[in-house]
């Protein structure tokens, strides 16, 4: 079976969930070979093996942290060339993070391949892997494939279930010689985000979001309390972010995160097309809005027309009571 290269997104050896989902998809089209770079790369191997990686190619060098994107492209290209020695890989899969997409795109140019970004599903096809994508704020679903070279495909979080599928996961060091361009963009400093203790927005099973109706940074407590009672992540509309009430990292929508949880609760959000673009594919949608005409109600499974300052605290209390 042909190899499928899977680029590993990890933080100091802790593999992020979307990479495990990629391994599930990779097994549909070939044998997953993981590529883990940077500090902690080797520590990823055990988890990757549990989820189906037959091999884990690892490399660490200061360049990966000190310069933007290009060193990682050099390494992924080295992995691609190593894999090509034994026949052409079936695909290169990369998680659809901002950085992942840029790495994938530059690799695609170098190896003369077409690229598909933000796939939400992947199947084997007669002419190579077929990717499902959402278009026009998730109002269309398309099926596409790469018609030249080894398909390079980036996949959104929550596109497949994480499955245990033990495999060898043999660690092999990858030799990387950095290109002259690798040191072009220096990362002068890096400030890690503080952890809130809540689930990651893009990975959470439940998301509770607040919008302009929340009317102030201090009022976001109400949204957070509901989220915490449900074990949910907190999201915000752009209006709330622009007003400075909540950090931009929590923005849901076209220019924020796109989420596809089991349950999405929107409070004080009107449902503009750019917001819908980031949450329309959620399985169950609930909204609280005092305007019965708000477009968000076109999407909901359950909607409450009312004041969020009344409805949300009452809901939180009920959730806590029921959970005992």
């Amino acid at each position: 079976m042909a190899e499928v290269l899977v680029y590993v997104d990890h933080v100091d050896g802790a593999v992020r969930k979307p990479t495990l989902e990629l391994l599930t998809l990779a097994r549909r089209i070939g044998e997953p070979v993981a590529v883990a770079l940077g500090s902690g790369a080797e520590a990823t191997a055990a988890t990757l093996a549990e989820h189906g990686a037959v091999k884990v190619l690892t490399a660490d060098a200061p360049e990966f942290a000190e310069y933007l994107v290009v060193p990682k492209v050099d390494a992924l290209q080295a992995a691609y060339e190593a894999a090509s020695a034994g026949g052409s890989p079936a695909a290169v899969l990369v998680p659809s993070s901002a950085e992942g997409k840029e790495i994938a795109a530059r690799l695609a140019v170098r190896i003369g391949s077409g690229i598909i970004t933000d796939a939400v599903d992947l199947e084997a096809g007669d002419e190579g892997p077929v990717a499902t994508q959402s278009a026009f704020a998730a109002s269309f679903t398309t099926k596409s494939r790469v018609s030249k070279g080894t398909p390079v495909i980036t996949v959104k979080p929550n596109s497949a279930a994480v499955e245990a599928a033990p495999a060898a996961g043999t660690v092999e060091p990858l030799t990387v010689s950095f290109s002259e361009k690798a040191t072009g963009t220096k990362v002068v400093s890096r400030t890690p985000r503080e952890s809130t203790g809540r689930p990651e927005l893009t990975e959470a099973a439940i998301v509770v979001s607040g919008g302009r109706g929340v009317n102030g940074a201090e009022n976001f407590r109400i949204i957070e309390e509901l989220a915490d009672s449900l074990g949910a992540a907190v999201g915000a509309s752009r209006a709330a972010v622009d007003a400075g009430w909540y950090p931009h990292t929590n923005q849901v929508g076209q220019t924020g995160k796109s989420v596809s949880p089991q349950l999405y609760i929107a409070a004080g959000i009107s449902g503009a097309i750019q917001h819908r673009a980031g949450m329309q594919t959620s399985k169950t949608i609930v909204a609280i809005n005092k305007d019965a005409e708000a477009p968000i109600f076109d999407l909901v499974d359950y909607g409450v027309v009312g004041d969020l300052f009344e409805v949300v605290p009452q809901l939180t209390e009920q959730v806590k009571a029921r959970k005992g």
Binding site: I288, Y302, V304, V305, E310, T316
Partner: peptide, 14 residues
Amino acid sequence: GTIVKDEGEGGKQL
């Protein structure tokens, strides 16, 4: 979906 108007019980119904 179902849309209800809050008459004081909206949170409970939800």
